[in-house]
Design a protein around this nucleic acid. Structure first.
Lengths: 195, 195
DNA sequence: CCTTTAAATGAATTTGAATTCATTTATAAT
DNA sequence: ATTATAAATGAATTCAAATTCATTTAAAGG
């Protein structure tokens, strides 16, 4: 019998990420993805049930990576809440630094994915938010943070800011601007704008 | 001859905003919009060239309002940079407080609109960003802000945070949480999380 | 070097909603 | 009242792209 050559599933996901990043999910054509992956339209359907599932798998991998690293981070001893927040910023930027297209897809298509039926994506997002809230609550207990800050508001603001900044960074994803974004964002989260 | 009853154009835009907010642009059906506006599918096309133009008009009105108010704000004498930033937060929340669905559409569909050909939307966004950068530069000159903060990073982060927070607020758009979001966000932008 | 069968192909089919347009309705002018 | 015509309707058409599947290709086992 014939055997599979290379790793087509991976090739397809990589191609899909790039096409979704450039075109957006709805304008992306399966034919474009197939071409970029170097195979035919029909083959895409041997590996993925449909277009939605492609996006779903991309987000699944992404979220699992983010949550896994974040979970390890908050369990690290000898880190205070401020250091953990810096760690979260690093987790996010490290994730997207190795794959800038993923940052664009994350910014553009998260809402589409969370609307899909039969997906655990609202749960993933909620877990991430809940990790954020844990860190902030911890910081408050350690008297590092303003006690009156509303957790939900703070986490929403930081999540949105981080996500959009990553997206902006992906427009010119070089190493130098990566450092500027990372450090700039950490500084704002800690100290805000004012002196 | 027959004359137009009421303001159908307005009815359609209002209905479209609600349907786009709930379903997202691509899943929204013209038939749903027509039904919610209390008229037929064909009538929608008497008032708008196509589905894209509906979204386009919604964003046009939205951006013009935001830019107009922001422009007036930065020209107001006797406001320092910190007060101007508070003003921007207020402009944004005032805009969406009177129409929470607009906040959801703004968060979900901005990327679709900026991909449309023949639209000035990248320009609108750039103008808004440029207003933000002006305020930050001013604050730096007034020695109110950390001199080393990167303007582009700070503005991206704040824009993203503000946009996503508004979207989160629209999920439970009551007056009490509005105040909590407004004040919480202003505080974080000024002072960050740490004491 | 056949034979078997999994893998791959891409043209043909299906689908589903955007858009159109022939027909109907309602108002204003005469 | 009648007529002219703008406004409105919604069933029929169009269209583009997702999905399918009959056919072809190529590796592995005998």
């Amino acid at each position: 019998m014939r055997r599979k050559e290379g790793n087509k599933e991976e090739d397809i996901l990589k191609a899909a990420t790039e096409v979704f990043a450039r075109e957006g999910f709805h304008l992306a054509k399966i034919s474009q993805i197939a071409e970029k992956a170097g195979l035919s339209v029909g083959t895409v359907y041997l590996y993925f049930e449909n277009k939605d599932h492609l996006l779903q798998r991309i987000f699944e991998t992404l979220w699992e990576g983010l949550l896994d690293h974040s979970q390890k981070l908050i369990e690290t001893p000898n880190l205070n809440a401020l250091e953990k927040i810096d760690g979260i910023v690093d987790v996010v930027f490290d994730t997207f630094a190795e794959n800038p297209s993923l940052g664009a897809v994350f910014q553009k298509e998260m809402h589409h994915v969370s609307n899909l039926k039969h997906t655990p994506f609202r749960t993933y997002f909620e877990q991430f938010i809940s990790i954020g809230e844990k860190i902030l609550a911890e910081g408050r207990e350690q008297s590092l943070f303003h006690p009156e800050t509303n957790l939900h508001v703070a986490v929403s603001f930081i999540f949105g800011g981080l996500r959009f900044s990553v997206h902006q960074w992906t427009l010119h994803p070089d190493a130098e601007s990566l450092v500027i974004f990372r450090t700039g964002i950490k500084k704002i989260i800690r100290n805000g704008l004012s002196v």
